[in-house]
Design a protein around this nucleic acid. Structure first.
Lengths: 204, 204
DNA sequence: TGTACATCAGTGAACGCGCGTTCACTGATGTAC
DNA sequence: TGTACATCAGTGAACGCGCGTTCACTGATGTAC
């Protein structure tokens, strides 16, 4: 595996692919982006990667394995997006900015976002997968906790974070699932128009 | 179809089933409850209803038709549950009560709730389906609007309702999708423990 | 520097499967006269 | 009240499909000596 990365691009047909794992993840991403998560098939992914149907098994035991790996990648990108959005003059600004980024990610990476939460398709015991999900939540959670102590002393510590997470998650899902009209455009328009107003009703 | 309903139960094997439509819907509900929405198959449903694989086509054009009908039924039951929960001394009590009912429905009727929002599996143009979904939303929306005028004069009128809807919907989805631990018990425990505290952060 | 060999990463044919849908059909029902 | 017939609601065999996975295999790579 000490492959020169350039050679991967250049020598076109060797018996050993050289970067098949990544190629399969890319292909899988393309497939679900085009056909939706339910349209995923291992054979189709292999086909796109130009490889026999049994090749993926060497890198990801089975189809669930591949999807779990892809969901993990997706959660990492998602976490990165939240982290990048954690900016603003005040704590509340940061929170709102993260909320917008949350929904934007869901709407631009529809299929990946779907997959991240389709736990019937992934191995929810996979350590990397769990860790990637946990990290994403903690980015928001850390900002929510901030310096300030909760005004709601009698409640579980995670409640404010969870309230925020629930609201943006719910909004994103409703948008994706066509509650604001079907098609990506309708969802994006709704998000632009409504989400800022909706976030005003979050009290944390 | 002027069938005596009692006879449906009693004479066991006639060529004409007599209430096949309902039997198929029941069977479909059982199938997705056992196997999840992805485990649905038209043949399996026909099998359980004790009928040939092509029989369902007479009542529901195809498999999407059946699922759309089932989703419609589900949305009606969901609406009924919200309506029944719309009780309390204050407006806010009613809202909270509806929120709890929302999540309870999602957790007890997992598969049906899943199906309601899986719009890749249903015909989202179906009039009954749309109407049933709309009605459910309006039950919450009516209570949210109440007598009182919004304190947020500059925002879209639907924003408070949508904020509430998003929060409970998001919470329900996170619970269902295993964010609070996998398995129904974990989800229910989390809902009991966290949901009331989460709802305190809704400002409407 | 050369060689033997283990290991790794692929091939491609084959398996068995369950699926949705179509098709020509038939049994039961209800209605017109 | 009896009969002819249209319509409705089923049957069941057959279709073609794409799927995930297994299997015995082989080509390429890297390492020990």
């Amino acid at each position: 595996m000490a492959d020169d990365l350039n050679s991967v691009k250049t020598d076109s047909r060797t018996y050993h692919h050289g970067a098949l794992r990544e190629a399969l993840l890319d292909a899988a991403e393309a497939v679900i982006a085009e056909r939706g998560v339910d349209g995923f098939s291992l054979r189709e992914v292999a086909r796109r990667a130009g490889v026999s149907p049994s090749a993926p098994a060497h890198h990801f035991r089975d189809s669930r394995g591949l999807l779990t790996a892809l969901a993990t990648v997706a959660f990492r990108q998602f976490g990165d997006a939240l982290e990048a959005a954690d900016v603003g003059a005040t704590r509340m600004d940061c929170i709102r900015s993260q909320g917008l980024a949350y929904v934007r990610f869901a709407l631009t990476e529809r299929a990946k976002f779907d997959l991240m939460w389709r736990y019937s398709l992934t191995d929810s015991n996979d350590a990397d997968y769990r860790e990637a999900g946990r990290r994403a939540f903690l980015i928001l959670d850390r900002r929510m906790r901030g310096e300030q102590s909760s005004r709601f002393a009698d409640e579980p510590a995670a409640a404010p974070s969870l309230a925020c997470w629930s609201m943006v998650h719910g909004f994103a899902r409703l948008a994706l699932d066509g509650a604001f009209g079907s098609g990506p455009e309708a969802a994006e328009r709704a998000a632009e128009l409504l989400l800022p107003a909706v976030l005003k009703h979050l009290d944390v």
